[in-house]
Design a protein around this nucleic acid. Structure first.
Lengths: 199, 199, 199, 199
DNA sequence: GATGAATGAGCTTTCATTCAT
DNA sequence: GATGAATGAAAGCTCATTCAT
């Protein structure tokens, strides 16, 4: 039954995801994963060679999830005025705050816990960061092409700048304790900061 | 014997700092620390209740070190023109890159390893981030006071923006592989980005 | 379906024989056996109560195989002169060396691995040894009966002596590294040694 | 305290020796060793890197013990007549039977269990066998030099022959169930067998 | 104060065996 | 009869911490 085993895998990855997010990778034993999934030790090792192996899948799905949540349906080509670009950036920042608020464990795990596990997982995070940076650059390049951004803009480096604002927003979110008003004020300030820099 | 005791503490913290930076907290055993310090297990526990306890001191001294290295002698009040402020920011970014290059282990430990250990150490890192942000805000507030920056600038949030650029620079450095030219280009772009946003 | 069932058994025993000889009993899992046989775990337990159980059959067939290979077509009654007896002994030693060279895994398994598994399998090996000893005695008894060996020969104990030479030959073979010349010289010396002792 | 730790090592080796002899290496867990020694798991790993490591020491001491017990005080040069050589050989065989009777577990462990563990330990046993063979050859070479054995005797191969008798005696002993009379009869027969072959 | 041998709970991983399909 | 996913006891090993000297 191909189906059965595929479900088990998903079930285990989900369980691992859950306990990793709650306690971190190093503080989580295989016993925690299998207890959460409701299966035995042996079953775990029927699906994954070792604890490190399931981390890869958790990381991949987590990174995919974050990318989807944050960039979402926004396409770099959608904006045709700088106002629309600002709106896109505002939407992204809004989704960042929403994500951090809704899934603080996941975000902390992917961004703060995972990079510390080993070099492999650090590289995986840096790849995520790079993808974010490239996406930001693509948004800016669209603006330059359509003429509503400075033609001499170094889109690559400015993309890093945008990225840094997104990371800053995440950190602010993780830090917690922002009222909805402060959050909106921060978003607006970041949008303004970014748009002045590139227009 | 107050002196002798204090020296031992320092000696142990220094040793711990060294091995933590080289291998990370979780991969470091108490045995690594005491071997590096040249003392016995028992002695360690005469000075620190447990392994977690010495981490606090290592973190504090590491954070202090980084703050000193990066902010250095620059005082928020030093700049009296926007050109001087730009020069200060340029100097800070230059020192960030230099620090990451000179002490990659330390930076990786404080920024990537430590936050993952437990909530306590995460909070300690966030405090560092906040201090950086406040310092950045102070630089900007000086500019507003002296009139060479927009009077309606939200210095607090703009400080976060500056901070995010600094973090981005660190990440870029950790990612490695930047040629001196690319590094300088990035610094200039970040300085320009920041100054357009606040002037 | 008696036939089908019997074939499966043989197939499994043959597979087990193969993997046991290649890797030893303790290093072989049931999964290795069933993979070699191309059946499932469940099927294995339809034919054998447990892993230990199939060992018995492997051991029996292995012991039979060795006995056949070494003693072969030689019958105790065949010799009617001491020269013919010597020729028989020479043929047996030659086949011993040939067997060790052709099937080192099997010999090592039966002689070195199997006795260590548990007392039951040790006893099985000792039975093999005893059978060899009795066969050797039968060869000698034939010589005494026909008058070409000393009439006061204690055939039972002298049989043990012959046996010990055969074991020594096997050990020499397992030890390896004998050139064909050395091998022939050893065989001749053993034959001479034996014949002087009994004539 | 150099003394304390040295004693612990010995205590652990002795305990391991004991449980290995009683149950075999594979059936013995580290927990069995430490229970026998009355120490904790951790202590075991303070003295030995792993379970395989203590086996080496047990094997070395066991092999030394057997060599001492069997060859004992007899020196190859002691015999000056073939009668004295026969007496030496008789003494050795007597000690072999005595050893097997007194320490059946040790003998079974060293000769039947250890060789099956891995190639390293098999080689260790073959080294023991070789030492025995060389010793036997030395006894014979002394006889040839002094002129009471055939001058054309191939002492090396005849040594193997003697060795094979010793091994046969050990196997007989392990097989068990010999009455004192049978034992003596076997010894005498073996001595006679050997002496006819070499005289 | 300093030592380091001793501790033991806890970890990851293996594998012979079972049983629902 | 055949399958193979599920089981769980048990293995080897680590390491922060204690305590008698």
């Amino acid at each position: 039954m191909r189906n059965r085993t595929a479900e088990r895998r998903v079930q285990l990855v989900r369980a691992a995801h859950h306990v990793f997010s709650a306690q971190g990778y190093r503080n989580t034993g295989v016993s925690d994963i299998v207890r959460e999934a409701g299966v035995s030790h042996g079953t775990f090792y029927n699906y994954f060679d070792n604890k490190r192996h399931i981390l890869d899948e958790v990381l991949d799905s987590g990174v995919d999830f974050i990318l989807n949540e944050v960039v979402g349906a926004d396409e770099p080509d959608d904006a045709s005025t700088s106002g629309e670009l600002a709106a896109q950036f505002r939407a992204i920042l809004t989704r960042v705050f929403a994500l951090v608020e809704r899934e603080p464990g996941l975000v902390q795990f992917i961004l703060l816990d995972a990079p510390a596990i080993d070099d492999e997982s650090l590289q995986r995070l840096l790849r995520l960061v790079r993808t974010f940076g490239a996406t930001a650059s693509a948004f800016l390049a669209n603006g330059v092409r359509r003429g509503f951004l400075r033609s001499d803009l170094d889109t690559e480096i400015a993309g890093e700048g945008l990225l840094s604002l997104i990371i800053s927003a995440i950190l602010t979110g993780v830090r917690g304790g922002l009222s909805p008003e402060e959050r909106d004020r921060t978003i607006e300030a970041f949008v303004g900061f970014a748009m002045t820099g590139v227009r």
